[in-house]
């Protein structure tokens, strides 16, 4: 009996490993920054170049930091959702304008809508690297204590908003 079951068992083990392995997305590198304080930064606002924004200003509220660029094609996919999210007033959305040109960035926002409370200009990507950005778009959920609670790698989708991001924001907003 064992002699017939052994290969079956070996196959099942192999199948489970392959199934788990193949269903993982190698592009989704887990961020070590989850549940760690969001790196602090001071950057200029795209629309008000004389105004410096500090990440500390947002302590005490739950906010989204969306990394975007006008050269990023996938950003166009998620952008309508961000505009809608901003309109709903659930959560303030801040943009990190990553390695972009100011003029094209402004054009892009005029064309596709501007969901951002402020778009912070990170021309050489230094702040991006502090946040572990390795692709655009990425979106961070930051809580009242300034701790990163979630990182969305790639564009936000209806699915990820509905099932993960919005419930998480609701939960975080109830905390003091």
């Amino acid at each position: 009996m064992m002699r017939y079951l052994a290969p079956l068992f070996a196959f099942l083990v192999l199948a489970v490993f392959l199934f788990v392995g193949l269903s993982l997305n190698p592009r989704q590198v887990p961020s070590p920054l989850i549940d760690k304080p969001a790196p602090e930064f001071e950057l200029y606002n795209l629309h008000e170049p004389d105004k410096l924004f500090s990440s500390k200003d947002n302590l005490g509220k739950v906010w989204l930091l969306n990394v975007w660029a006008s050269w990023c094609i996938a950003c166009r996919d998620e952008h309508p959702l961000l505009v809608q999210l901003a309109k709903s007033g659930i959560v303030p959305v801040y943009g990190l304008n990553y390695k972009d040109e100011n003029t094209t960035a402004k054009q892009w926002l005029r064309l596709y809508g501007d969901p951002y409370v402020a778009s912070l200009v990170d021309p050489d990507g230094t702040v991006g690297i502090d946040y572990g950005v390795y692709g655009v778009p990425e979106t961070y959920v930051i809580d009242k204590q300034g701790i990163i609670r979630h990182k969305q790698i790639g564009p936000v989708t209806v699915d990820s908003l509905r099932n993960k991001i919005i419930p998480l924001i609701m939960e975080l907003q109830e905390q003091t």
Partner: peptide, 8 residues
């Protein structure tokens, strides 16, 4: 780098 991108 590990602080930002993990052991990966």
């Amino acid at each position: 780098l590990v602080d930002r991108y993990g052991d990966f």
